[in-house]
Write a protein that binds this DNA or RNA. Structure first.
Length: 803
RNA sequence: GCGGCUGUGGCGGAACUGGCAGACGCACCAGACUCAAAAUCUGGCGGUAGUGAUACCGUGUGGGUUCGAGUCCCACCAGCCGCACCA
């Protein structure tokens, strides 16, 4: 090799070499480390520099772990079912599997250019029948355990994707995938009872090494609240209305009741005089879009003509219907305390209903309220509850109610069951057969997978019927239970199905007896570090946790939480916008690899900014990293044959380098790792000029530390330094802290808090000596003043307060 | 509306538990090398005043705590993100 840094030659050479002799092999003597990237959807656009950011980060950690002596599992695969492939197929009249295969080939080529440690033997593809066999198997287990069930109800329907959406996919009333406004449609759908796991999904968040942000997003989404259920008897009727409230302390202030328009007893509760108005109101509410219903703050409603009795004071209160009450949260009925709830206050003002204050802020007089008061205070106007502290009463009242048989303590969740079927072609068929006599029957496990049939038209319909429904020879089958004619379920699973458990399959991807063997799972899983974008915080990450907990419960996996540590890398934008084909602002890594090399791009991806924050892409900065690698090349190349003993100063730099790089790498503050490399390399070069060269140990340390980041150049320089084996066999160096102390240190000098000068002192100098020297240095500034106070922070600063 | 994050030169960003703000890099300027250019190397690079050493100002705004604040506390402003009538 010549003295020029020929990255093309070097990278080509080592990529080929590593493919022949992988640097990371399974070796059970070593501890394990499972480092996982969120697997990509193999899109036609390919990968952009934003994808690389996460992949490079996880690869750096993987290589670091190899150097530390771990056996590392760092796999890659394809989340390949889903709408884009299907839409592409419809447009180009080709089968989605072909488009998918093409895209996988292209993305795989790009991934090779990162030179990540991926072990391609472990590859998984969610559209492979050998894979989705187990996606279906899990569904069958859920069905058998009563966690998969059918239900007809109004669902979020995306008119553009032409399929139903899960609640998690329809936040803000828009489709998570395409942004279209979601409408409601009454359909029979398969549901997964994720709510059965609500409490565990919430509680176990505490055990995870995830960012507070994602944990909070999940716990808010699960939305646990504590309160009471209270029964209100309806006047002149056998009916009782149960309400859920988190503020039972305000019960005496309840002056009316509101039901959701969909509440089951609305018709029965409506008097003949009010019938017309209530029916009209309920009809209007049903046609209102879910967005309007969520965002219209202006209150509307209708009086049913009926009254019920407040159980704590016997007062009769009117029953209204209003669409600000949600049918599927709590009981669908709300006790209204206008004095202490903003929504109830607005409603009472609008319809002129009585407002009774029952909580008085401490130290205030009772006066007419201009807005609802929701804080703590003293209870008033509440019979024998008077004088209690409101927030204490909140805890006590449910027990009082329970003793009197008027209600009970209860909890509620915002989380809803998961709408699991989709009316599209390119997904896993739901392995269920509908039989007139036996109902819904699971396809026997030995008949899995239920293969996705070839179909002439993949086109979705507007009716909520799956394209599969038209393939009679596929739909018509026999009931596995009774053998009579039956029909297959024609809906497919959502794209989340395959991604909810893929991390389990990597550890044992060729297993045809089980989704993964217990031994392999125990060896590798759970994932030690999971790297991906934050956009899946309440989607994939919640679903995967749910799946894992279920599989744990049925004894299929030996742990409850799939991802111990989660790292969410920030998005890379271009000119402030998300990179997308339609905006034409996609920056492909391909040209950059061509012009600067993989190593430069890897380091630049990390250098652009703090990895957890979004950042805007700018090509020009890569020059700096490229120049740095050239400097390293030259430094090592020019000094490798010199016989120089390590000097004290160089030993200091070398050990500080190890110390800083290791700490920053552990903290995943990768941008500061790169700047640290530059800083120390500059210092080493300067020192080398002063002392006429660099010792070999320092060069070797630099090269080994650099290996996870710029593996090709490191491997090449390692060879140049005379080693036969790979740099990844070198072991990660440890800093010798005894070498990191200096004889003399620089102290900053302040006069009255203002920085004035610096001075060098012996590192072990005592306070008196330092202060005496400081006053000497600052003599001219202290002239004519009296010293009031002297402060010395050892090793850092002297501050002399003088007047 | 509620909750969270962020705010530092022309730009991306450093600054660990309060202790020399602007590390490192980009861009820019000057010099060396060169017939010339590129590459490379050397130096400069927050603002204002001054020939100058130097002085004063400076981390979104206003206040506070402290010998000392980018860092801690209070109030506010701006931007981004999440949730959004969850009783």
């Amino acid at each position: 090799m010549d003295s020029r840094y020929d990255f093309r030659e070097i990278e080509k050479k080592w990529r080929a070499e590593w493919e022949k002799n992988p640097i990371n092999k399974e070796d059970d003597v070593k501890p394990k480390f499972y480092c996982l990237d969120m697997f990509p959807y193999p899109s036609g656009t390919g990968l952009h520099v934003g994808h690389w950011r996460g992949y490079v980060l996880s690869d750096v950690v993987s290589r670091y772990k190899v150097l530390q002596g771990y056996q590392v599992l760092h796999p890659m695969g394809w989340d390949a079912f889903g709408l884009p492939a299907e839409n592409f197929a419809i447009k180009n009249n080709m089968h989605p599997s072909i488009a998918t295969a093409n895209n996988i080939a292209n993305v795989k080529r790009q991934l090779h250019e990162i030179s990540a440690l991926y072990d391609w033997d472990k590859e998984v593809d969610t559209t492979d029948p050998n894979y989705y066999k187990w996606t279906q198997w899990i569904f069958v287990q859920m069905f058998k355990h009563g966690l998969a069930y059918e239900k007809e109800m109004p669902l979020n329907w995306c008119p553009s994707c032409k399929c139903v959406l899960a609640n998690e996919e329809a936040t803000n009333g828009t489709c998570e995938r395409c942004g279209a406004t979601v409408t409601k449609k009454n359909l029979r759908q398969w549901m997964l009872k994720i709510t059965a796991y609500a409490d565990r999904l919430l509680e176990d968040l505490k055990t995870l090494d995830w960012s507070d942000k994602v944990k909070k997003m999940q716990s808010d989404w699960i939305g646990k609240s504590y309160g009471a259920e209270v029964g209100f008897k309806v006047v002149d009727s056998d009916l009782t209305i149960n309400v859920y409230t988190t503020r039972p302390d305000t019960l005496h202030g309840c002056t009316f009741m509101v039901l959701a328009p969909e509440y089951k007893d609305v018709a029965a509760l409506t008097t003949p005089e009010c019938k017309e108005a209530v029916e009209k109101y309920c009809f209007e509410a049903s046609t209102k879009s879910s967005v309007d219903r969520m965002t219209d703050k202006e209150k509307t409603g209708a009086f049913t003509g009926s009254y019920c009795i407040n159980p704590v004071n016997g007062k009769q209160i009117p029953i209204w219907v209003a669409d600000y009450v949600l049918a599927d949260y709590g009981t669908g009925a709300v006790m209204c305390v206008p004095a202490h709830d903003e929504r109830d206050f607005a409603f009472a003002k609008k319809f002129d209903l009585p407002i009774i204050q029952v909580i008085l802020p401490e130290g205030e007089e009772e006066k007419e309220l201009t807005e609802a008061y929701t804080g703590d205070g003293i209870i008033i106007n509440s019979g024998d509850w008077n004088g209690m502290k409101a927030f204490e009463a909140k805890e006590k009242v449910p027990h009082i109610m329970e003793e009197k048989g008027l209600g009970k303590k209860t909890v509620n969740y915002k989380l809803r069951d998961w709408v699991f079927s989709r009316q599209r072609y390119w997904g896993e068929p739901i392995p269920i057969v509908h039989c007139e006599h036996c109902g819904a029957v699971a396809v026997p496990e030995d008949q899995l997978p239920v293969l996705l049939p070839q179909v002439e038209s993949y086109k979705p319909t507007d009716t909520g019927e799956s394209p599969l429904a038209h393939i009679d020879e596929w739909v018509n089958t026999t009931c596995p239970k009774c053998g009579r004619p039956a029909k297959r379920e024609t809906n497919t699973m959502p794209q989340w199905a395959g991604s909810s458990w893929y991390f389990l399959r990597y550890v044992d991807n060729h297993n045809d007896k089980e989704l993964a063997s217990m031994d392999r799972l125990k060896k590798w899983a759970p994932v030690d570090l999971y790297v991906g974008g934050i956009e899946h915080a309440v989607l994939h990450l919640l679903y995967a946790r749910f799946y894992t907990k279920f599989l744990y419960d049925i004894g299929a996996v030996p742990f409850e939480e799939p991802f111990q540590r989660l790292f969410n890398q920030g998005m890379i934008t271009k000119n402030g916008g998300k990179m997308s084909k339609s905006l034409g602002n996609v920056v492909s890594p391909d040209d950059l690899v061509q012009n600067y090399g993989c190593d430069s791009l890897r380091m630049y991806e990390l250098f652009v900014g703090p990895p957890e924050l979004d950042c805007d892409w700018d090509d020009s900065g890569i020059d700096g990293v490229f120049r740095f690698l050239n400097r390293v090349w030259k430094l090592v190349y020019n000094n490798k044959d010199l016989e120089i003993a390590p000097t004290k100063d160089m030993e200091y730099l070398r050990n500080k380098l190890i110390f800083d790089i290791t700490n920053r790498l552990e903290a995943l503050t990768m941008n500061t790792v790169v700047s640290g490399f530059m800083e120390y390399t500059n210092k080493i070069i300067d020192l080398s000029k002063q002392q006429g060269g660099v010792d070999k140990q320092t060069l070797e340390t630099l090269v080994v530390l650099l290996a996870p980041f710029a593996p090709h150049i490191a491997e090449e320089l390692w060879k140049e330094l005379g080693h036969q084996e790979s740099v990844f066999d070198a072991g990660w160096p440890e800093a010798d802290e005894s070498k990191m102390v200096q004889d003399t240190i620089e102290i900053a000098l302040q006069v009255s808090g203002k920085f004035r000068d610096t001075m060098m002192v012996a590192a072990d100098a005592d306070k008196e000596t330092v202060l005496a020297k400081a006053k000497e240095v600052l003599a001219s500034r202290l002239e004519g003043k009296t010293v009031v106070k002297e402060i010395y922070v050892p090793g850092k600063i002297v501050n002399i307060i003088a007047k």
